[in-house]
Design a protein around this nucleic acid. Structure first.
Lengths: 345, 345
DNA sequence: GTACGCTGGGAGAGCGCTCTCACACGTGAG
DNA sequence: CTCACGTGTGAGAGCGCTCTCCCAGCGTAC
């Protein structure tokens, strides 16, 4: 085999493309990176050579030379990944990954151990990524807020620290959505509207309660009783019992409308109410929040707020990419929700 | 400012550490990479310098020089990420990420667009990763099987192609688990045991049906009626109706035990049965599969097969890491499941 | 006809690290 | 005392790419 002097068939390099096209490395680099100042014929020749050799640029080499990594980290604090495993995490990640799939960025997923936060910090600050996305729900998770000045960071869900006015985040408007849900109950003629609120240590819990309250106040109605749950089905059932605690058996419930801060609790509450012989929506109209997969198959199907979690992920990715590109995206991006009318209200 | 001749405060490099410690780059590299042949004093000096400068090795440079990337790709075919969004995907990913978090590997998550599979192939073969994990459920997803010879790949869930005897995978034993569930029904005295099977185009659907059948045959019982669903709650309810189709209203159901191939379908089936006045577990004992989060809060709480999805992810990561290290892990790793006894059987 | 842009392409110096050598320095055997 | 050998360290050549010059060639204005 003349010419084949034992050279291993390694992946093609820029240099090889340059040789094949009869130009210099620099020119091939220009073509690959889309520089405009290349003569059409040369551009064609280079592209032919690239196709011929099935050339794929080496990310590592490119990063080393350009000081950009084309990597975006997606950080999920461990507690979030556990607590919110099912309903929330997956679609957000999917939205992020899909959006990034259309760019040249690569997604680095890391579950941040809360026991040794320095490990994650060092990784982020060690020049391994161009930016980071942080998905979290708890106040405690926000040890990353401080990194915002050293590295582009976008949060999913409003960070709860008070000093985060200068950080970027994408969120749904929990308050407005809760208002919408409550206003709907008002619009269908309900006048004594109770709520089962979620955990008050996260923005979602706080804001949804606040939205419910303001909707009623603005409508000139007295806010009905409030019970608190922990976003789980069991706690929803318990909260419903609490709301009924003062009512004697057999008497009608002390409320005719109920806004529940998430669907899991709503499912529990509906069961509890039905067990007491309360008809839904006839006696009590119930609106949930989240539009979990099971919401449509409850009896009756649950009227609820649909949260486009995948859009939230996509939005986060979008803001971060623009931030890295040196643009000035809005610090606060709100993803719209919508009320899904089903049978429960 | 003497000495500070405008040098930008960039992240410290190997070279700077070497200068600080009074040794050569090569020696620092040895220390960083844990070579044994370094004199204790020098080792100490280098480590001091590293600590002093807060040095973090640059991954890109390291990869370029060593031809290893320290990156593992986690590929989720788009259809899988959609269909299995909630119950399955998240914990597996978490298991993978957590395991990899204890190594030096970095996790690259990519949602593989099924419309342009070459993009993913090129990425994998372009020297960007050291190995790949593929999470999928459908036969069609396995366009990656062929890459196994070019790159270490570990599958989550048994690949369904016939020619994959040489690929690596981690899975639960669906067949044995279904057997266990069915044997339990037999052990509590049920004799006419039906099943609602899942989609027959994926191993989970096929194997669980097969396990049910073999358990009954081995117990000397006639397999009861079979209905098929699509792993959704609605399809479970429909399938239950089908099973009852031949029974007249008021007569006892034609079976006293029911194994359902996943919890979503089980939830639907239980509702449908109860709507017909059938008491669970009194008239029909029901066992599900998956132990979804909601399983324990159904009425009655669902007896089901618990799948340690996070362990599956961890197992995949573990096998891949060993494969990359040149070891010979088993081609087939089975993660044990367990039957969780609750109220429905 | 000369001077001056301007524009496309090439040369070459790195980016931060690894890794193969070669070298200096003991140590033990001949 | 010399020679072979082992052991720890340094020198230096890349890994594949980007990017800053720099130069050649052309068009335009005077």
């Amino acid at each position: 085999m003349p010419g084949a002097s034992g050279t291993p068939p390694r992946t093609p390099t820029l240099e090889m493309v340059a040789a094949a096209a009869g130009v210099s490395r620099a020119t091939v680099s220009r073509v690959v990176n889309g520089s405009t100042s290349v003569t059409p014929e040369i551009l064609q020749a280079v592209n032919d050579a690239i196709a011929l050799l099935d050339y794929v640029p080496n990310r590592m080499a490119r990063s080393l030379a350009s000081r950009r990594t084309d990597v975006i980290a997606l950080i999920v604090p461990e507690s979030t990944s556990t607590v919110f495993a099912d309903p929330f995490f997956a679609p957000v990640v999917r939205g992020v990954a899909r959006t990034l799939g259309e760019t040249d960025y690569t997604l680095n997923l890391l579950i941040a151990s809360e026991s040794r936060p320095e490990k994650t910090r060092r990784y982020l600050l060690g020049g391994n990524v161009d930016g980071a996305l942080v998905v979290s729900h708890h106040a405690e998770d926000h040890s990353y807020v401080g990194l915002g000045s050293a590295l582009p960071i976008v949060f999913g869900g409003r960070p709860v620290n008070p000093d985060v006015s200068d950080s970027y985040y994408v969120d749904v408007d929990n308050r407005a959505s809760a208002r919408t849900a409550t206003e709907y109950l008002v619009s269908i003629g309900r006048r004594r509207i109770a709520t089962i609120a979620g955990r008050q240590d996260m923005p979602a819990g706080l804001d949804r309660l606040e939205g419910w309250r303001s909707a009623l106040t603005d409508a000139g109605l007295e806010p009905g009783p409030v019970a608190y749950g922990a976003f789980t089905q069991a706690s929803g059932a318990e909260a419903a019992e609490q709301l009924l605690a003062h009512a004697d058996a057999g008497t009608p419930p002390p409320f005719d409308g109920l806004f529940v801060a998430n669907d899991q609790m709503a499912a529990g509450a509906v069961q509890a109410l039905q067990a007491r012989g309360i008809r839904i929506p006839l006696d009590v109209a119930v609106v949930g929040y989240d539009d979990d997969t099971f919401a449509s198959s409850l009896t009756p199907p649950l009227t609820t707020i649909h949260q486009p979690s995948a859009d939230l992920g996509a939005g986060m990715a979008d803001v971060l990419v623009r931030l890295i590109a040196g643009e000035s995206p809005p610090r606060r991006t709100i993803i719209p929700t919508r009320l899904v009318l089903r049978g429960s209200a």
